[in-house]
Design a protein around this nucleic acid. Structure first.
Length: 668
RNA sequence: GGGGGCGUGGUGAAGCCUGGAGUUCACGCCGGCCUGUCAAGCCGGAGAUCGCGAGUUCAAAUCUCGUCGUCCCCGCCA
């Protein structure tokens, strides 16, 4: 199924953020001569994405552009994309990049692009003969400043595809601020440029409308989160990024300490324990846009370095968390899609999600639900099915609908099922006469075949898929096939869903218990957790959007005794727990308020809302699947002197391998 | 750790299955022409160790093996 999803959303979507959004709320008008200060005007359009980070504190002088060396007005008095017919007659100076140049031998057109959009500049040698040399040298992506007058375009040359298409700037003066080398790829959204190349020249990639729109969307999403939470009385608190390593869950990134040789910091996998201690610290309502690090393999929705909206509330349970979060999500969706979401979001128990959709993150935009068939085969002669039932397995199926697959296509489904962990997959196609065509049909009784059709609501032409395996495998396989066969392309429709009542523990392949959420999650019943850990339910919940897990949260354990009991069930001895989490558990002994919280994957939600198939598209400087940043050549080797200072020797085999490939990655 | 796709002038593709001279298309680049285009147009030109290394063969972009890179999936991601 589905190759790469289309990017049609970028140009097609209704409210999706694209570059033109910057023009929606234009108000300020340029005064004649254009001397009105830019930062004033900025305030009007602020939040439209092209405010160049004015006033970020950090020691720089205060107000607007005033503290900078260059008076911007000498380079620019107007934003390209904001000009309109109301500016006709005004003398303006615009600055930006040469998006395209169209040279007619005499008259030359330059599409000048800045963060606000594009405006056409016309250079006419009859009007300005002295500009010839400059204009001849102009090339794509030169950074230039243009002085000229805004004028209406001549009859018949209006461009309705351009927001500024009614006007143009007649240039009287052009300054090349910076020339540009020939580009490694073209700055537009048409070509599918190699990922590696895009990342190597990310600064150019970011000039593409699609990426600029994604940056803008991200900024707006963060702003929506912050303002919603601030209005709701949340305190934004930062937590450390050099923390104690807790070898559990994902692999930690380690940072060697120079002052304490042989000791290591870890980068945080999340601010989990710190935010709980903030609850102990009386913060009551905390949030943070937190960078998190997990040294695990990449996926299209996973980078080793990612960003979460982390929040926590004291005297809260699940309902307060969900109620606090829904307006935040709604504000983000409003900001990026212009949509008013219906709240509250629907809820579904973890058990229901697994039974109906075969996954804990159901995409409820479409049906094709799993149907239990064990009953139909309670007395079957077909060994693959009877064997599974006897072993306590589950037989279930989905109705894939009219797939019209060839034999090769059906075999492909079998292979896919095997990749998902099944021993096999039974497919059946409903023929015109209502009979079931299937390699195993001859092993099944009429009653069984009839039962299958009835249970799966089979109609002529439908493809039915049946798996008989252990319950988790059956569900995982059918759930996976369901996604392959039925999931809509892209994310025009949005279906949020809370999945609640997660189990406390998962049983690993080796039969070991691990925390399903994390070990600080409150079980619904502590005694039950100890007596039947495999079945125990916790107060944990996930937020799911269109089949993607956006984030998860839980009510926390606020009592050190319960915390200790959970560790015991997990097989963590008291001594070990004290060693690793003693600092945290001690904190719980000083009047810890009951508390609960959540963390939302920001990269994921923005990627989905922007209809992007990969979170790389909404991360300014992401890494490749093997953890490389091709722009900087990170990670790279370090000097022996640096290692010596840290008291670190590379293992001989590692050192040898490094020398083997010497030369390595070059930066300037 | 495993499975799969891809790697061809600066970019994107076709060529590969069925071996026969680096062949083709679009964009870009360089030069020329061109005064209303907007992905401008027309003419000309330059630009390639076909990712790298072995092997098979008279002959390899093409077949085989290995390797590197990249992307997707399984595992992993409390």
């Amino acid at each position: 199924m589905g190759g790469r999803s289309s990017r049609s959303g970028v140009e097609g979507g209704l409210g999706r953020i694209d570059r033109q959004v910057g023009q929606v709320s234009v108000q300020g008008r340029q005064s004649v001569g254009g001397r009105r200060r830019l930062h004033r005007r900025r305030r009007v359009v602020g939040g439209n994405g092209f405010d160049e980070g004015v006033g970020h504190g950090g020691g720089e002088q205060g107000t607007g552009r005033g503290g900078r060396g260059v008076d911007e007005a000498t380079l620019r008095t107007a934003h390209a994309g904001l000009l309109s017919s109301e500016d006709i007659g005004n003398q303006v100076r615009v600055a930006g990049w040469v998006a395209t140049r169209r040279d007619h031998g005499g008259v030359l057109f330059v599409d000048l692009r800045d963060a606000s959009g594009i405006v056409q500049v016309v250079i006419n040698p009859e009007e300005q003969p002295d500009l010839d040399d400059v204009t001849h040298a102009l090339r794509d992506e030169f950074c230039i400043s243009v002085l000229g007058s805004v004028r209406a375009r001549p009859e018949g040359t209006i461009n309705p595809d351009l927001a500024t298409g009614e006007i143009e700037i007649g240039a009287s003066e052009i300054t090349v601020l910076s020339p540009a080398d020939p580009l490694p790829f073209q700055i537009d959204d048409r070509a599918d440029v190699d990922e590696m190349r895009r990342l190597e020249f990310r600064y150019l990639d970011l000039r593409r409308p699609r990426m600029a729109a994604n940056l803008l969307a991200r900024s707006r999403a963060l702003q929506a989160m912050r303002s919603t939470l601030a209005d709701d009385g949340f305190l934004e608190v930062e937590t450390p990024t050099l923390v104690k390593s807790t070898p559990e869950g994902a692999r930690d990134f380690l940072v060697p300490s120079r002052l304490r040789r042989g000791s290591f910091y870890a980068l945080p996998q999340s601010p989990q324990l710190f935010k709980q201690l903030l609850m102990v610290g009386g913060v009551e309502r905390y949030y943070q846009i937190a960078r998190c690090y997990r040294d695990e393999d990449f996926r299209s929705d996973r980078q080793v370095e990612f960003t979460q909206l982390d929040l926590e509330g004291a005297f809260w349970g699940q309902d307060q968390v969900l109620a606090a979060l829904e307006p935040v999500i709604a504000a983000v969706v409003k900001a990026l899609r212009g949509l008013d979401l219906e709240t509250p979001f629907p809820r579904m128990s973890h058990a229901d999600a697994l039974a109906r959709y075969g996954t804990d993150k159901p995409d409820i935009r479409f049906g094709m639900e799993l149907v239990e068939l064990s009953e139909v085969f309670s007395a079957t002669e077909f060994k693959a099915f009877s064997g599974a039932v006897e072993a306590g397995g589950l037989i279930a199926g989905i109705n894939g609908g009219g797939l019209g697959l060839s034999r090769a296509g059906l075999d492909g489904l079998v292979e896919r099922a095997q990749a998902l962990g099944a021993k096999g997959l039974v497919w059946m196609v409903v023929e015109d006469d209502g009979s079931l065509r299937s390699p195993v049909a001859k092993f099944l009784s009429d009653a069984e075949l009839g039962g299958i059709k009835e249970r799966l609501g089979a109609a002529v032409g439908d493809t039915l898929l049946i798996v008989a395996d252990s319950p988790p495998t059956t569900r995982a396989v059918l759930g996976g096939l369901r996604i392959d066969l039925g999931q809509p392309e892209g994310h025009d429709e949005l279906q949020f869903l809370w999945v609640t009542d997660f189990p406390v523990f998962e049983v690993t392949g080796e039969g070991r218990l691990v925390a399903a959420h994390h070990p600080f999650t409150a079980p619904v019943d502590v005694a039950e957790m100890e007596n039947h850990p495999e079945d125990a339910i916790s107060r944990a919940y996930d937020l799911v959007l269109n089949g993607t897990e956006l984030g998860s949260g839980s009510e926390r354990i606020h009592d050190p005794e319960t915390q200790a009991r959970v560790f015991r069930v997990l097989g963590i001895s008291d001594t070990e727990a004290k060693e690793r989490f003693g600092w945290f558990m001690r904190g719980l002994r000083y009047g810890t308020p009951p508390h609960a919280g959540f963390a939302v994957g920001i990269d994921r939600i923005i990627a989905i809302l922007q209809n992007e198939p990969n979170i790389r598209e909404v991360i300014p400087f992401p890494k490749t699947q093997t953890g490389l940043d091709p722009l900087t050549g990170t990670p790279g080797p370090v000097d022996d002197a640096q290692l010596a200072e840290l008291g670190i020797d590379l293992r001989p085999e590692v050192k040898a391998a490094l020398e083997e490939e010497a030369g390595g990655f070059e930066t300037e």
